[in-house]
Computed example of a mutant assay.
Amino acid sequence: MTAASEPTDSGRPTAVVTGASSGIGAATARALARAGFDVVLGARRVDRCAEIAREIDGTAVRLDVTDPDSVSAFVAAVPECRLLVNNAGGAKGLEPVAEADEDDWRWMFEVNVIGTLRVTKGLLPALLASGDGHIVTVTSIAALEPYDNGAGYTGAKHAQAMLHRTLRGELLGKPVRLTEICPGMVETEFSLVRFGGDEEKADDVYKGLTPLTPEDVADVITFAATRPSHVNLDQIVLKPRAQASASRAYREV
């Protein structure tokens, strides 16, 4: 693995991307590689990460952010790090509070909040040691506003955002930048997971409008990561033109 907090002989600082097997994570890994980073891809589906790693001359390491032992092993495999992209996360279910599934809620808080905490804590020493670290956390517009039937996910994303925003103050004066990325509707496997593999329900989410693509979000992440060291883009909200809020969008009939 080529990894360094200072540029290596190849001139490439190391970036870690979690949830990198598909969607925003995979697109971000590719975009960061094009921007000159040596990318370490982490996800449960490490075979998919390995394919992307071969394509971009990166490294794939299995990572399950809900498993402390997996996170510890992952961190041990990445001794030096300049950029961390906390992208692993997800939603399950879309029920009102009165019908909430506690197991779904528990999973959403574990993967979005505790998972982000584990990886960030584990890699923070390396990010500080790099002298020019950067933590990018992909939250959601669900971290900015509630919407009906989404309390489990919006609650988890609000909590994840509070973790990230609190770090912004706790690390003030340290050589680490923090950027929160808040995407609106992005067409990935997100809705397919949320609806338990129901493709029809997942497709309906984006019906009648043009959603963002993973590449759109990856471009924004890469832009933030390649600003001069003194420039901190604290929070970036991006949505499709047809979407005004989490619950308001214009759809062609």
Rank of each mutant, 00 (worst) to 15 (best):
D103P: 08
S72H: 13
T139Y: 02
K121S: 13
R241M: 13
A202Q: 02
V231A: 14
V65A: 12
V138H: 03
H230T: 14
D216L: 11
A76V: 02
V85R: 01
Y147Q: 12
I135A: 05
T179R: 10
V186Q: 07
D203I: 00
G208D: 01
G25V: 03
A53P: 03
I181W: 05
S191H: 07
I24L: 09
A142T: 08
P146F: 02
A27D: 09
V65I: 14
T179C: 12
I114V: 15
K207E: 08
H230D: 13
R177P: 06
T154R: 01
K201F: 11
T154Q: 05
D47V: 10
L163W: 13
R165F: 11
L84T: 13
V136H: 12
G155E: 06
I114L: 14
L167F: 09
E180D: 15
K92M: 11
T120W: 04
C49W: 00
T28G: 07
L192Q: 10
F109V: 13
S191R: 05
A156D: 02
P175K: 03
D234E: 14
H158A: 09
A88S: 15
E51Y: 00
A60E: 01
L192T: 15
G23V: 06
R194L: 02
Q235R: 15
D47Y: 04
T8R: 14
V113N: 02
D104N: 13
N232W: 03
L167A: 08
G11T: 06
